[in-house]
């Protein structure tokens, strides 16, 4: 009897497990009152923020389900365009080829260069950074540091941080002579913290948080301006980027409501909690 029971169970569970793997319905929205489902895909930088905001939004509108998936800014853009997602997330400005999409900034972020905390170099000009990433400067002694070879840390292809970085410094992705390639910001920070002769770049929010919790990195100023969420907020830090929600075509009532909520003062605590800078919306 025991055997037959467990085999029955197995037979019952298998189809259920298979059904559970089937893709869920595409997000649909209904008119009148706020109910329905929103699907967001894209930037892994924005996803945690969008998720936190979605939780709060769902509390206020119990009939709404918001599904947040990561996959990088490029995925966010292409999913918004193809309709796979109701809203795309892109942690950079829209490019010239993307003008048919609408960007709604929900926060500001910056990208800054980071060095190991023990590095004596206090600042680098844009030209020096460019030369280091092109392999023209290979030793810290050439930029006022100790006699040690520079370890160049770069981001993997497709990351918005990489695009913001290459655009600001006028670099071509193909020309960069990197020694280490990392995936996310955390890995970038751990790599630089573990190697006294390395240089990398990450999101300012993540860097500020890590440097504040005794990780051995320091943030380099850009054009003499301190890298901090404060200088990003004031608009003075030169390597900034918006965190955008992206929509294509007509915006539904639910999409509009969620985007407005993301931009409202009601979620500023969530934005600053993740070390981003809230957008200044006209009150």
């Amino acid at each position: 009897m025991k055997h037959s029971l467990s085999s029955l169970l197995l037979a019952a569970v298998l189809p259920v497990a298979l059904v559970a793997c089937a893709p869920s319905e595409a997000g649909t929205t209904t008119d009148g009152g706020l109910s329905g489902k929103l699907t967001l895909t894209g930037s892994s930088t924005i996803a945690p923020l969008a998720l936190e905001i979605a939780k709060r939004f769902e509390e206020r509108h119990p009939d709404v389900r918001i599904d947040v998936q990561t996959g990088g800014s490029s995925r966010g853009i292409s999913d918004a365009r193809s309709g796979l997602a109701d809203i795309g997330m892109a942690s950079r400005r829209l490019k010239d080829g993307e003008i048919e999409l609408t960007a709604h900034a929900i926060a500001q972020d910056g990208v800054c260069m980071i060095l190991h905390a023990s590095n004596v170099v206090a600042s680098l000009t844009d030209d020096q950074v460019r030369a280091i990433y092109l392999g023209e400067i290979e030793n810290w002694s050439e930029v006022g540091g100790e006699d040690a070879p520079i370890t160049v840390v770069n981001k993997a292809a497709g990351r918005a941080t990489l695009e913001v970085f290459t655009k600001h410094f006028g670099l071509d992705e193909k020309e960069i002579q990197a020694d280490v390639i990392v995936g996310d910001n955390e890995q970038g920070i751990k790599t630089v913290a573990g190697n006294p002769d390395s240089i990398g770049y990450v999101s300012i929010g993540t860097a500020e948080y890590s440097a504040g919790s005794d990780v051995a990195i320091k943030l380099l100023p850009a054009n003499g301006i301190t890298a901090s969420t404060a200088s990003v907020g004031s608009g003075s830090f030169p390597i900034g980027r918006p965190l955008n929600l992206v929509t294509f075509g007509e915006v539904s009532k639910l999409q509009r409501a969620y985007i407005d909520f993301c931009r409202s003062a009601e979620v500023h605590d969530l934005v600053t909690g993740l070390y981003f800078v809230p957008v200044r919306t006209a009150q």
């Binding site: 996959g71 490029s74 995925r75 995936g183």
Partner: peptide, 12 residues
Amino acid sequence: IALELGYATQEH
């Protein structure tokens, strides 16, 4: 694959 699949579209 692990580094790039999440960020890849089309031919990539």
